[in-house]
Computed example of a mutant assay.
Amino acid sequence: MSGAGYDVVVDVDEEGDLGHTDLQEDLEFHSSNFNTDASTSSRKLPGSSPGLPPPATTGSGSSKRFLWTLSFYAQFFDVDTSSVLARCWAALYPRANFLDVLEGNPDLYGPIWIATTVVFILFLGGTISKYLAETGQGHFVYDFRLLSGAAGLIYGYTLVIPIVLFLALKYFGSESANLLECWALYGYSNLIWIPVALISWSPISILNYVFVGVGFGLSVAFLLRNLYPVLSATDKQTSKILLILVVVFHAFLAIFIKVLFFAPARKTTEDPTPVKDGESTRLFMF
């Protein structure tokens, strides 16, 4: 060893005698066991000692994600704002297969917020439509059953139908079926109902039918375009049946949206002639 970097201070008297200090004996460089101890400790894991858990950086158990941990659900929301906006644009203006746009990382962040937005806009549009239909008939009362109905319809459809489709694909032997991708596909397909709900509050019923019909056509075309490669993995007859069921279920969704939220309420005709108390019994008898 060269000893570079080490300073030695030696007390020297006037005669130059070093006293009892012997440089050959007292200032010897001893071999250190630092490297040996480090290599030995590197081979010892904390888990080898009793009572000490393995470190978090080791591979034992760190990659496991259980249902009761936040990391299990965080993986479904591992997406940034730019990715969500790009997926929304791909759903409204599809130029490529949406599953390719997902790039193997389907999320639930976008579908949940889209479904929530659709629920509130359906409630708002349905309330406006009902208000316009009942103008001049007395005090208007908000019907909050529209909110619960919109939540049940949109959340139920977006949650249940992908599960049914996934189970059907698995039953018929499709290996490419992925439940998270089905949820993402149906969730982003709901995006078209936001502009439809914003313009379908007109008291003109035929106009509302046109708007809802356009929304149904665009959204079902988006679903069929992206589901066809997955459904075609089954046999030909089964894929046709599944495609028909996808269209039928989506048609029911569009019909319920039109009837429940954008159908003008019937105006009750009131007789302006006052009725006396004595005549009310005879009127009810007839």
Results as ranks from 00 to 15, higher is better:
L102N: 01
T281C: 03
E103V: 02
E270K: 03
Y93E: 10
I255M: 04
L223Y: 06
G59W: 11
T69P: 00
F166V: 02
L23C: 06
V10R: 02
L122F: 01
A254P: 00
D100A: 09
V210D: 11
D26G: 01
T234M: 04
G173A: 08
S219W: 04
K258W: 03
A115V: 10
R65W: 14
F34H: 09
T269W: 05
L191D: 05
I204M: 14
A251V: 02
L185P: 00
L179V: 08
V12L: 10
N208M: 13
H139G: 05
W68T: 07
L179T: 03
L132V: 06
F66C: 01
I161N: 13
S202P: 00
K44F: 10
P195F: 08
S176K: 12
G19V: 02
A115W: 01
V8Y: 14
L198Y: 08
A177Q: 10
D26M: 06
S42A: 15
A197G: 04
S71H: 07
G110Y: 05
A90D: 05
E14P: 00
S60D: 14
L224V: 05
D235R: 10
Y155V: 10
D100T: 08
W89I: 08
I112Y: 07
L231F: 09
H139I: 11
K130L: 13
G104W: 09
D26N: 03
N35S: 13
L185N: 02
V275H: 00
F249D: 01
D100W: 10
D271W: 09
T268D: 13
R87I: 02
A168S: 15
V160D: 08
L122R: 00
G278M: 01
V12T: 02
D22N: 08
S280Y: 09
I114E: 12
M285P: 06
I244H: 08
A96E: 13
L283E: 05
S42F: 15
L99Y: 11
D13T: 02
I204Q: 14
E175A: 06
G126V: 04
V10I: 15
Y109M: 14
A151W: 12
G149H: 12
L260N: 04
F77W: 08
R266W: 09
L18W: 09
D235Q: 12
L231Y: 05
D7S: 12
G3Y: 03
L147K: 07
L167N: 11
V259G: 06
V196I: 09
A197D: 01
